[in-house]
Design a protein around this nucleic acid. Structure first.
Lengths: 196, 196
DNA sequence: CTTGGAACTGAACACCTGTTCAGATAGCCT
DNA sequence: AGGCTATCTGAACAGGTGTTCAGTTCCAAG
């Protein structure tokens, strides 16, 4: 056997990535074999190498695309705008973006240690760029006298940790819906920076 | 060759656990082999099985002992005490405990998915017991009118995520010392629940 | 209807995996 | 001095790992 009916590179490629993502998130990069990924898509193991040069690149590519999308979709910095409104927008964006991509968020955090040092450096730099955007908002609010923050850097990390944590417990169809969650987190964030 | 000079079960045992902990935290459970662990301690692979029935139990044992210590050392619930003081004590305890055991905290969170379902259930139950302690404090403060909390359950999860996040960025000898970190986190927590 | 090549298979490679166990050794007790 | 046993080795087992590649099949264009 070889090429199968109706198969196309531009269909199989995304399917491979989706399967890898699912399995990496479920069981961890190191615990998932190329044969398992291939099996999920209905391929032999060898066919995967038409879509990725190797397993490491497959992981890196998933993480890199995710971080890129995160940075692109983040509302542009608007230094003239009200810091409080900017902080609210950031919190809302973060929660929505993360709730929509639980698997990607999960591996982008959990699988950092399975990246080669070079790949790790790339992802880490992107993460810092994202954090810097929040830090800038907190700085602006502090300077404008709208926030009362004891330590901007620490508060940045604390807020991101708090917001990202939403993925560890939120389940669709539970007690709260997305809007409810967004509102409560916005509330927590505003209070934590002394804006309420 | 066989038994070596000065070797004792009660010395080698802890050394095996320490090596496993270090390596699991560094590279992940699935990515670490029994031979690597044994090598770290200067043993052949077979000798490990004098100290653990298998690899899975080694991981579970590390996580279980960690969670047990967490629950034991957590200041006892004191429902008559001031909720604000109890919350401060909880935050301080959490930060200190976590800063003192970064590797254990790390694997207790990261390696949950590498536990068998039965082992996972045990650890998860312990984690919930810990979270319930914070939830109880928040409830008490809300009822006493000391806190203003929109959703106790969500706030519990958010605060724990925020506090646990300290391990992702804190490095000894950095800009802030432990006391400084504790103080700022206490501040953030109190503000988030509307106690300031 | 032929042909070019994209899409894929499956065997093979060299090596690693967790775990078992017969055998070897070193220190303690008598 | 002799023996006992806790401690450990290293080979062996059955199977899995990422990756390569010669060969096969099917589709589409000429």
């Amino acid at each position: 056997m070889a090429r199968r009916q109706g198969s196309h590179s531009d269909i199989t490629g995304p399917r491979v990535r989706a399967a890898a993502l699912r399995l990496f998130a479920r069981h961890g990069y190191a615990a998932v074999s190329m044969r398992q990924i291939a099996g999920e898509v209905g391929l032999g193991a060898g066919a995967l190498y038409l879509y990725t040069p190797d397993k490491q690149t497959l992981l890196f590519s998933l993480m890199h695309d995710h971080m890129q999308e995160l940075l692109e979709k983040l509302p542009a910095a608007a230094p003239d705008q009200d810091p409080r409104a900017r902080l609210e927008a950031f919190a809302r964006f973060h929660i929505r973006f993360h709730l929509d991509r639980p698997d990607l968020v999960f591996i982008a955090y959990m699988e950092l240690r399975n990246l080669t040092p070079e790949n790790f450096a790339v992802i880490e730099a992107m993460r810092r760029r994202y954090e810097a955007r929040l830090e800038e908002i907190l700085c602006a609010g502090e300077l404008a006298g709208e926030f009362r923050i004891r330590d901007v850097k620490l508060t940045t990390m604390a807020l991101i940790a708090m917001l990202t944590g939403v993925n560890t417990w939120f389940r669709e169809g539970g007690r709260l819906d997305r809007e409810g969650v967004e509102a409560i987190y916005r509330d927590l964030v505003l209070k934590a920076v002394g804006a309420e």
